[in-house]
Design a protein around this nucleic acid. Sequence first.
DNA 1: CGCAATGTTGAGCGATTTCAACTGCCGTGG
DNA 2: CCACGGCAGTTGAAATCGCTCAACATTGCG
Lengths: 243, 243
Amino acid sequence: MSDRDHLSKLTRRLQTNTELSQVEIDRLESLPMQIRTLARFQDVVQEGDHPTQSCVVLRGWLFRYRILESGRRQILSFHVAGEMPDLHSIYLEVMDHSLAALTPCDVALVPHRPLQEFVADHPRIGAVLWRDTLIDAGIFREWMVGIGRRSAFERLAHLICEMYLRLAHVGLAQDHSLEWPVTRTDLGDATGMTSVHVTRMLGELRRARLVALQGSTLTILDWGRLVAAAGFDPGYLHLRPSS
Amino acid sequence: MSDRDHLSKLTRRLQTNTELSQVEIDRLESLPMQIRTLARFQDVVQEGDHPTQSCVVLRGWLFRYRILESGRRQILSFHVAGEMPDLHSIYLEVMDHSLAALTPCDVALVPHRPLQEFVADHPRIGAVLWRDTLIDAGIFREWMVGIGRRSAFERLAHLICEMYLRLAHVGLAQDHSLEWPVTRTDLGDATGMTSVHVTRMLGELRRARLVALQGSTLTILDWGRLVAAAGFDPGYLHLRPSS
DNA sequence: CGCAATGTTGAGCGATTTCAACTGCCGTGG
DNA sequence: CCACGGCAGTTGAAATCGCTCAACATTGCG
């Protein structure tokens, strides 16, 4: 696999949101970078760090989180292939949260300097990357709405809808079936509940015949009813129509 | 008051985070714009809109929110003078939430087109504005941590700490005292609780002699203890040291 | 095989909500 | 000038959603 092939995960995803010219794609894919493989729970960057590079997810799931003094953890987001979970560090010197591997992962590390120069030279791509961080913020908002104002049951249903669309968008899910590597504890910390309650609510989802969970394969049995149960509206993902 | 004076609210705030050259400040302040005055609860943009301009807060507080079908509301953020609450719409076609006035407000509306051209011509300022939206996202993350993992009491204390620093940063608060135009209901919708519980927890804060609330003036009686009670760490605001 | 991590289930508890009544404040119009 | 209506805030009592604690089952891996 050549370097170009690695970053094509990123450009292919960006392209589904914005047209990119071949020249732009070429320059983007020839950015210097370094591949790294991560084990579950291995940190990419930690709160307080001053990173000098950002990463592109090539394989596996990453997640961002914060841990309070009391030990309580909040997971802030999940990230799958083609995404740049810490692109924000390009202009934010200090990390205000940590980024780690949820599953074994491959990531491409791209140094900030060339990325910044690239953005200055190609304002159109700068805009595309900026937009990507804006969508990221939109997902934070949606999670906030969920944790603040949705029931535990709705929250879980909502997260499943979201991850299914995001995975399908990069070709990692289809036929309402997806790899689901998120433990009850992770899920609880992402949705603001305890792992015990996650187990119960997941049971409800199963009993309502909305989803089935065998091993780490999650199947959505009734997309329409799941969407309705979650109050899910995909607008906040800002995906292009169809794609 | 000339047009330049209006946007100086913005440039002065941006400057406390990044050095700007006089040329950059001049060009930024001479962007076309239009002043508008808003009454409490008047919307600037609504969910589903396709805005063609973004606004700069000149006076008053704005807030962003989403309302679910069930009628439940989540307030996503508060915004004070010098901030651009809907700068994200520069690259996100459809609004995924609404923006409204919390108090009577003056805002400057800046059309997207010249703003986009400006950003393309001045990558350094593009970076500063981008950075501003990244800090915005950092605040969303912090609120998410709060709603998901902090107690009601901590959440209120935390929000007071945050708003005090943000207001002080633009010269709108000092001596641990600030104008506090947020009703119990607004506060509940911002922190993910009911207005009834806000009343009770605010009572606790008062009884603990952490804050005093007379009319719409909030006074922080013991900053150190309030910060400790909130588990507040200002890192996520990415303010420059001192300033 | 055996440990460690993950998941399940039950019982009791507690933080927050819900429902409801009541108070205080302020602007408006008679 | 005062009566009225409406919004915001306060307080109490009961209900509930989700948490804690704890025991046990299951899975995966060295």
